[in-house]
Design a protein around this nucleic acid. Structure first.
Lengths: 206, 206
DNA sequence: CGCGACGTTGATTTGCCTCAACGATTGTGG
DNA sequence: CCACAATCGTTGAGGCAAATCAACGTCGCG
């Protein structure tokens, strides 16, 4: 069952007691998302943390030329949200639907997916009534921060080929199921150039 | 006074009461750091959060060719630490000096500086005894995460010139005092190429 | 079946790096 | 305080990395 996957995930950070499990369970929503369906679009006010139970998503921005740039992928047991929008809300406005900044990003399903959403106001309730969630979500954000920092380091210090190989190694479960166009967008190169990189790698190996 | 700058900074997130102020004050260390002095070196176990009272630091990694790559700068009112190392420690090992992973990074003073350090075990004490600090440091990490995400987006979607102009706009207080070689390393380009970018910009304007 | 997304290839152009050199500035030890 | 070394910003020639544009075959999906 979907909720059980979330509980197991949270338990891996800090074991929850039954009151905490109940508090979470009461405040989340399970949703099924179809391929190509959006759970966030540019201009929306981002209001949820999204936990991915199954399936796969891409979060991207669209530039002035209409090109998409993948900022992050998310698959099973990942969290995906636009913190820039979600977190621009001040505590006093948590209940208002349109406080803070609208999002500049899109989150779109690449596969048939199932997610669990938790609204910011419910998360704040958990923070205030069950302090353990403060720690869990701080650690989740810290982990994502470290991942992102490594990516920045790669971007400023490695060639495209090195970055591609690092992606394959670091995200084997993603590289299998994503089209190369999407990977190219994530790496910041064109699909054509990724194709020549792949050719070079395969000729080296043989 | 140095501590007062830290308190003012923390108050800007959530106002502290006198017990919380006292708890922080008792557990931090003020240090003066000279130019070119390190507060973290590759191989060290990172044990502190560093709050910069005055001065300026760079955090960088050194690649196999011996080249430095600036991951982050820090100036007044910024926090600087290697989360990847600091945060690899499990709660049970907070008191041990060599738990977790050694750092891969350097943090070096670019100017004569003053910092306030807080050890992980003291921060954990604050988390457990004064839950407000959980929120404050979660928000600090979230803010840094959003900044980093914008940088990733820039790296994969913009030209070097655009990234340089964005840097000037976003960090005017840093771009004044940093040598261009350091900015180039942060942007992931060579100093020579940054020089030609600067020439292009100045000829465009006139 | 037909359309659109995908992966690939090639020709050409552009962005950016490498290497070498130079003057100007800063800093440091004698 | 001076002399010398180190750092810095810049310029130019040449080369490689990567983008652009166009084209083509394949595949999955409606």
């Amino acid at each position: 069952m979907a909720i059980q996957k979330l509980i197991t995930h949270l338990n891996s950070y800090l074991p929850l007691n039954s009151a905490e499990v109940e508090a979470v369970t009461e405040r989340v929503t399970v949703r099924k998302i179809k391929r190509r369906q959006f759970i966030l679009q540019q201009g929306d006010w981002c209001r949820h943390y999204n936990f991915i139970v199954s399936g796969c998503f891409k979060m991207y921005s669209v530039d002035t030329m209409g090109k998409e740039h993948n900022i992050q992928f998310g698959a099973e047991n990942n969290w995906l949200t636009d913190l820039a929008s979600l977190h621009s809300i001040k505590p006093a406005d948590f209940n208002k639907p349109y406080a803070g900044k609208p999002s500049k990003l899109y989150i779109e399903a690449i596969e048939e997916s199932e997610i669990i959403q938790i609204e910011l106001k419910d998360l704040v309730f958990l923070y205030e009534n069950h302090p353990k969630f403060n720690i869990i979500f701080r650690v989740i954000v810290e982990n994502n921060f470290v991942e992102l920092q490594n990516r920045v380091l790669q971007n400023i210090s490695s060639t495209s080929e090195e970055r591609y190989l690092a992606f394959l190694e670091h995200y084997p479960n993603l590289s299998n199921r994503l089209p190369n166009t999407q990977i190219a967008s994530y790496l910041g190169i064109t699909p054509e150039f990724l194709s020549t990189i792949r050719k070079n790698i395969s000729t080296k190996q043989s």
